[in-house]
């Protein structure tokens, strides 16, 4: 079934999206209807975090979210994260720490860390950080550089 158009604010722009079937995932709407292919599909089952976006500021797995369930929401993807001060700081930290190998996991990590900064600020206890970001997997296993990027982002004022 397909209901009426969805209205989202995507990366700060109002978007009306038509023809979305009831069973479509937010991930597919972003990639194929809006052409925002920075959001990646890894596992499609909630295990890898590659599809992470912000929905009303909260980290959300777009592969496990029906597009229609978040009608009216404000959505931030990797394409728009740089205009958020926290997101820009995270991006700089990933660049400075060279925390990117193939880059497939990077959008998910950047969104998760941006969401974490928004939600909990920069005072997250160090022993909780691994658990906070444990939902993002890097298949290149470049975690050492990613951990450095996280430390940099947390120590840098926005």
């Amino acid at each position: 079934m397909t209901g009426g158009p969805l209205s989202w604010t995507v990366n700060g722009r109002a978007r009306a999206v038509t023809g979305v079937p009831d069973d479509e995932r937010l991930l597919d709407s972003l990639r194929w209807r809006l052409g925002l292919k920075g959001t990646k599909e890894g596992c499609r089952s909630g295990e890898c975090g590659a599809c992470t976006v912000l929905v009303d500021g909260e980290t959300t797995l777009s592969c496990l979210t029906l597009a229609r369930e978040v009608d009216g929401a404000s959505i931030t993807t990797i394409e728009g994260v740089g205009s958020d001060p926290d997101g820009a700081a995270v991006r700089r930290a990933f660049e400075a720490a060279a925390a990117v190998q193939c880059g497939y996991c990077t959008p998910g990590f950047v969104m998760s860390l941006t969401g974490l900064l928004r939600e909990r600020g920069r005072s997250v206890p160090p022993e909780e950080i691994a658990e906070e970001l444990g939902g993002n997997l890097c298949r290149c296993t470049g975690y050492v550089a990613i951990v450095r990027a996280v430390a940099r982002a947390l120590s840098e004022p926005p």
Binding site: V55, T65, G115, E131
Partner: peptide, 12 residues
């Protein structure tokens, strides 16, 4: 609760 999935999963 912290043992369930990941942070992004627990947001939903």
């Amino acid at each position: 609760v912290r043992a369930v999935g990941s942070v992004a999963l627990r947001h939903r």
